[in-house]
Structure formats: structure tokens, C-alpha cells
Design a binder for these strands. Structure first.
Lengths: 290, 290
DNA sequence: CGTAGAGTTGATGGTTTTCAATTTAGGTGG
DNA sequence: CCACCTAAATTGAAAACCATCAACTCTACG
């Protein structure tokens, strides 16, 4: 019953929409799951069959990248704020994000939330797990995903010499990201954290062939704060500071124009230098902590 | 050298049994490593052959846990402070730690060091990587390790239905540890961080069947600080505070006696409660940050 | 047009860092 | 075996950075 209470609390904390989601209690676990829209039962039962089919298809030598595994799965739509799965749920599915952005987070006992990552179109969620999800996943924007049962996914991967290294590489990337995040949280100040964050998004944006150095930040300030280990006020203040320094410029509510990418990279304080790091000339006297 | 390798490969295909290994040639370096087990005219060159050997051994139904892969490798000794490998090195080996403790860390541009983990006897290092090491590894105490080339390791794993899930589980554990660390660094104060740290060690110690709740901390305060995202002064002060609260007691320079494990668990502020959390009765008014 | 949520800005205080001095432990050589 | 020396650990005082509290503005949306 205590678990029930804390789960309710969590749902409240997560701002899960109450008026549209009915709650059902699953036997055995005592945990709350918001049930999805009516059709989901059909999806769930058909997944396994799809999985087998796909596994056989790849055996037969079809083009096999991880995403193709999901190609035949039905597309599911998530509205902003809707949950995909919860921390502690048994990890029954793997998801391919087709469109939109999700936040990946944990809630600790006293209600604080830690966002451990954001997931974007093209990413796959739920691979590096055994047993239960280590975190919850929630849509930030309108999101489209395809799901595959873990069983189907694992079988397809186990049977394919081609896929296995891809999964391994994926896990390694996740690990590397976690390491970077630990560095960021361990010993960077607010400005460095924000710059690292923006830089990551800038690189993503530019590598996608964007013409302008404008990063789209679909998440709220609270999300950014919970990701960077800062409060919304500090995030806001730091953005203001960077703007007044001329590093950033406003570009709409959920976008930022990066005016001086090189300065941003310097301020981020990573070891790896941005290619054109010496291009813009700025005095920045800070350096502290530890 | 290549000819030598292929000759050995042929030998292996002819089912020539390699029982004793006297000399190991590391790929790329042509460096010679004498083996511990004595007298032997036989040698192997390419580690690839090692892989086959081990893979065949497991196929033949031998006990196969990850450690057994390393069983025949020579034992290497590291003195305190000695490096095992460096961040950025191409990740050519996987290591099995037999004895001692290592620190796993990264150094960022301005010289700050972040310890992302400690590695103890029984752990395996260097699995969750593709290409290059993401971190450096350095012995804290006198340490014994066995190494296997990544190639040999990967091949053994790829060929074994039994080993693959073990590697996957290992990676998942690492991932879970990284997540926990991110939570710790994101939103715990000094006391909570230290308590979490000590609790982890206490659990390890007790699960190893220790009779007394005394945790051995081979690392220095600086190591602890760099791991917990604190300075040595803060670490020291927090230990003093916990001692004056009666939670800890001194037990030698590199050991601490945990007098009130339940209080320690409460102060750690994790969601998961220690079984006997309500056993000792202490007022602790703190709760802050975020 | 009005409300609610998100974002900004300001003032204040607390935790931890930083700087500095001191104590303790560990190792070496006489 | 003890004195000495160095590195590690502790303790104190001041400052810095960020969190907290609070008031306010802005935007989106019905």
C-alpha cells in the first residue's frame, strides 16, 4: 500500500495527465500503470509474431540495420507528457523513436527528478537493460514510436552476425554518454554545463545538415535543469548571461541561435576542441571548482 | 609475424592442443611477455588463436563463466599508482582483476580528475568499449590482473551462447552503476553522497561474509572526493560529522567501522530502504538541494 | 480577454569550495 | 629504535556559487 501511495505520488510529480488517463493496478506488483488508448492490446499480442517474422527476414539476408527490425511494426503516437514506460516496469519492449523527443528520468524518494538523457528521432530506447527498466520515459513533444518485444528483439539480434555488433555499439555509445554526463555533473559549473549541453545539440543539428546554427530545444527549462543538475532559475540566468556575452541570441521560445560556437566550445571546457575554436576572440576569465 | 600466426592457426585447426603457453606476442607491438607457468617450448603468436582455443573449450562443455576465459593467462602484477591503460588508447585488451583495487578515471582539459568508478577483485574491466578506452585505469593497491586481447575475448563470447548473456548482463550492471552515480552527482549533498558510497561498500563487505561491519577503503580521500564530486576537505569534514553523530567509528587509517548501518542507509537518501532501516533511532533534520 | 503555465529577474542565505595552517601517519636512514 | 621528512588528512576562516524564496513578465490557449 505504501508503494501504491508513492507510485501515485510519482505520477503526480511526473505531471502525468490525470483527466485523460485511467489507472489500473496490475496484480502482483502493486504498481500503477496508466493504460493506453484502447487499441494497444492488439499491438501487444501481435508483437511477438512480428518479431519472429523479422528475425527470419534478416536471416534471409535482407538489409539489416537495427531500425529495419522495427519497420513493420505499427506506429504508436504519444502526446506531450504521455509516458512510454516507468522505472521498475519489467522491460518487455524495445522502442524505436521515429519522431519527437522523450525524456528519460528517475525519481528519487523525496520527489526529486533526475533526467539522465533525452531521446530523439532515430534513437532506440530500452536496449541496455536486463529485467526491469531503470528509468521512466515520457514524451516531451508529440512523438511516434514503434515497439518490439524484447524477446523478438533479442532473438533477431542473437541470430544475426550483423546486428550483434550494432547493439553492442549502441550500448557503448550509451555508456560513453553516461560517462560524459558524470564528468559534467562532477565538476562543471553552471555555465560549463549549459555550454556542453548546447554544444551537443549544436553538433547534432549541424551534422543533420542545418544551414543555420540554431538549436531547437523542445524541452522546458525544468527539464534542462533536471538534466544538468541545476535549478530552472540558474538555467535561465546562465542563458541570459551567455546572451549578454553575445554567445547566444534568441530565436523563438524553444530555439537558441548560437552566435559564437567556438566560444561556446571553450566555455564548455571539454578536452576535445571544436575545430574552429580559435575563430572568435573573447575574454572569459572564469575557471573554478575543484 | 603474420606467417607465424597463420602457421599457428593451421596447427590449431589440426587440433594440436595448446596446454602450456610460454610466450605471448601482443599484436601490433611484437612485444614479448614471458609466462608464469614454467618450461615450455611452445608459443602462440596471434591472440586470435587464444580465442579459438577458449571458444572450443567452452563448446566442449567446460564450466564457462567469464572469469574462466582468463584462467590460463599469466598473472600480471601492478604496484600502487601503476597504470593499466590510458584514456584514448586503442582498447586492445580486456582485464580480469584477481586481487587489489583500481581507479577508473578521466582527466579533463584543465587538469581536473573525475573518478568514474573503482574496480575490485573479481571485476572485469574494458568490456563496454568499442575502439578506444574511455578512461584510464590505475592501481590503488598492489594489484594482480590477467589480460585477454579484445579479439580473443570477443570471439570467445561470440561463439558461446552461454557467455553472451553474461557479457550483456555485465554491461547492464555497468550502465546501472553509471545511472546511480548520475543520480548521486545530480542532486545529493555531501552527506548523502558519502553515505551512499559507504553503504555500497558496506553491502559489498557484508555480502562477502564479513563478521564485523568494518569497511576497508583502500583509496585516498582525494580519490573519494574525485569520485563523489567533492573536495578532500568536504569528504574529511563529512566523515568527522558522521563520526560525531555516532554513525561511524574509526578503525584504522583506511578502514571505517559502521556503527549505525540503518542510519547510514537513511542518510544516503536512496529510494530503496535497507532492511533494518528502522532499527536505530536518530534525528536527522537535513533535506535540501533542488 | 483572462487565466495558467513557463520563463525571467532580484534578494538572500546556505553548502561547499578555496585558501591556509596544523596534525597525523608512514617510510627512510642513521 | 628513534628522529626526521614527506604525503595524507584534518581543521579553521572566508568567499563563491548556486539554491531558495518571491515577485514579476511573457506567451499560449481556451
Amino acid at each position: 500500500m505504501r508503494e501504491l501511495a508513492s507510485a501515485c505520488y510519482r505520477l503526480l510529480q511526473n505531471r502525468t495527465v490525470f483527466h485523460t488517463i485511467s489507472i489500473r493496478v496490475l496484480p502482483g506488483f502493486g504498481q500503477l500503470y496508466p493504460s493506453k488508448d484502447g487499441g494497444s492490446a492488439m499491438f501487444l499480442t501481435s508483437n511477438r509474431i512480428h518479431g519472429y517474422e523479422i528475425a527470419r527476414a534478416t536471416e534471409l539476408g535482407e538489409q539489416s540495420c537495427l531500425h529495419t527490425l522495427f519497420a513493420r511494426q505499427p506506429v504508436e503516437h504519444l502526446t506531450p507528457g504521455q509516458s512510454l514506460f516507468f522505472e521498475g516496469d519489467s522491460a518487455k519492449h524495445v522502442f524505436d523513436v521515429i519522431e519527437g523527443t522523450l525524456r528519460i528520468f528517475r525519481i528519487i524518494s523525496d520527489g526529486r527528478r533526475i533526467i539522465t538523457g533525452f531521446v530523439h528521432a532515430g534513437d532506440i530506447v530500452g536496449v541496455s537493460l536486463k529485467g526491469n527498466y531503470l528509468y521512466s520515459a515520457e514524451a516531451i513533444t508529440a512523438t511516434k514510436v514503434r515497439r518490439l518485444t524484447r524477446k523478438a528483439f533479442d532473438m533477431a539480434v542473437a541470430d544475426s552476425e550483423e546486428l550483434r555488433p550494432q547493439v553492442f555499439a549502441h550500448v557503448c555509445d550509451e555508456m560513453a554518454a553516461a560517462q560524459d554526463q558524470m564528468v559534467l555533473l562532477s565538476c562543471k559549473n553552471a555555465e560549463e554545463r549549459l555550454c556542453s549541453f548546447l554544444l551537443k545539440y549544436l553538433r547534432r543539428t549541424m551534422s543533420e545538415g542545418a544551414l543555420q546554427p540554431i538549436v531547437d530545444l523542445p524541452m522546458t527549462r525544468l527539464d534542462m535543469g533536471d538534466y544538468l543538475g541545476l535549478t530552472i532559475e540558474t538555467v535561465s540566468r546562465t542563458i541570459t548571461k551567455l546572451t549578454s556575452k553575445g554567445v547566444l541570441g534568441p530565436a523563438g521560445r524553444h530555439s537558441l541561435r548560437i552566435i559564437k560556437p567556438a566560444t561556446l566550445a571553450q566555455l564548455a571546457g571539454d578536452g576535445d576542441e571544436y575545430e574552429d575554436s580559435r575563430r572568435d576572440f573573447v575574454v572569459h576569465g572564469e575557471r573554478r571548482r575543484h
